[in-house]
Design a protein around this nucleic acid. Structure first.
Lengths: 221, 221
DNA sequence: ACTGGCATCGGGAAATTTGCCCGATGACAC
DNA sequence: GTGTCATCGGGCAAATTTCCCGATGCCAGT
């Protein structure tokens, strides 16, 4: 094989891809050979180009980031996917690794962390950014978050909005769905998590680290 | 005046009073001259005996602990009341000091902390146990909890139970009132705190330190 | 003792939400 | 094509929320 690492970028924002490409191309042994703007395209282009490493944001239109990882891994179980997400929440990392990602680093990481991660991943080594690793370790010690796994990606998204104390109508507007659907999801979420009230739901969410407590405590009322 | 400190104990559990009395009598200069089992009796006995220090639990039947402090202070604005409560929650301490208590220490404190506190109080010095002092200081720095002050003692009590994710029926059974009253209070509490949902209520409660986060995170699901 | 204020308790009734059902659609695997 | 599953939402009875109300009791002031 070539001694350079062939990379595919997946992000729905062209500007963002542009920036990453510029950054990565500065590395002598990195080569960005493809870019995709959604999960479907990522899958197609992966089959076409067989990159060494996929660098992917999972917050994609249609929420198909995780699904794309699954499909790519199904097509090639040696596929090396590095998730590069804005979410500091370890649950995302869990979902991503479960879907088959080899690494997860947050966008707030240093550029060189990204670069090192890509090298690591290309050598088939798992990689987590320090903040995520720590958070995950804490969770491992603490709670069983199997219940959260029951949630679909969409439900998880609605849960996050609910936890921000948004109303059904606000969430419906944000996601462009009917308030009725939000209400139904709200109900299903409570069922799946085994809670009977929103207060219990909030407590559980805090236990599971779905709520950033520092942010909560600091925010203006 | 005598060189011994004349103490009145107020607690609804006779056994508890017994224990404290035994403990306090061991101090050469302490003298337990009266005991009351509720707020009304505390008021009456205070007028009768004029103790130097009142040591009082505020979780009394009828929730008249705070009210009793107010009345006693109204009768004698030099009255020295030390609240000795099981609640680690600084909001209780705030309410107590607002009602006119000179000190607040938790029942989990060392016996000698209680003894020192009584001496301090008798010298008209404010006293808080270390845990409460720290929590209160944190609050001072942090949030404005003026909204909480709007709540009556009863409402505050119901709020605490609500935050434990208890149902209206459970709370009704605990307090021997109708679930309908609990629902009404629940509504009033949300109005007073200016929130629209239970999720918001829970978040606010966390901000205001009404929920012990460590306990929350540690407890079994 | 009377009065006014306030906390507590709960009934009533309309508006809203919840709980659980259902079918429709679309994406994907086999 | 067929099966599975996520997503979206309608329907509808049951439950809850919201806001009103009056009754009671405690306490303060006169």
């Amino acid at each position: 094989m070539s001694d350079s690492i062939r990379i595919m970028l997946v992000d729905d924002h062209a500007i963002v891809r542009e920036g990453y490409r510029a950054l990565l191309q500065k590395q002598a042994n990195f080569e960005v050979i493809a870019e995709a703007c959604d999960g479907a395209e990522a899958y197609t282009l992966y089959k076409e180009h067989r990159p060494d490493v996929v660098v992917m944001d999972i917050s994609l239109p249609g929420q198909s980031g995780l699904k794309a990882i699954e499909r790519i891994r199904q097509f090639d179980n040696q596929a090396k996917v590095l998730v590069f997400s804005m979410h500091q929440n370890p649950s995302f990392a869990l979902q991503a690794t479960r879907a088959g990602a080899l690494g997860y680093i947050t966008k707030s990481s240093d550029p060189e962390v990204l670069i090192r991660a890509i090298v690591q991943i290309s050598n088939n080594k798992h990689t987590l950014s320090a903040d995520i690793a720590q958070a995950l370790a804490m969770e491992k010690l603490g709670h069983d978050q199997s219940a959260i796994d029951e949630l679909t990606v969409r439900e998880f998204e609605i849960l996050r909005l609910l936890l921000e104390a948004k109303s059904s109508q606000e969430i419906a507007d944000l996601l462009n769905i009917s308030p009725k659907t939000v209400a139904n999801s709200h109900y299903i979420i409570k069922k799946k998590l085994g809670v009977n009230s929103d207060i219990e739901l909030t407590r559980l969410a805090i236990k599971m680290n779905l709520v950033n407590l520092l942010e909560l405590v600091d925010e203006a009322t």
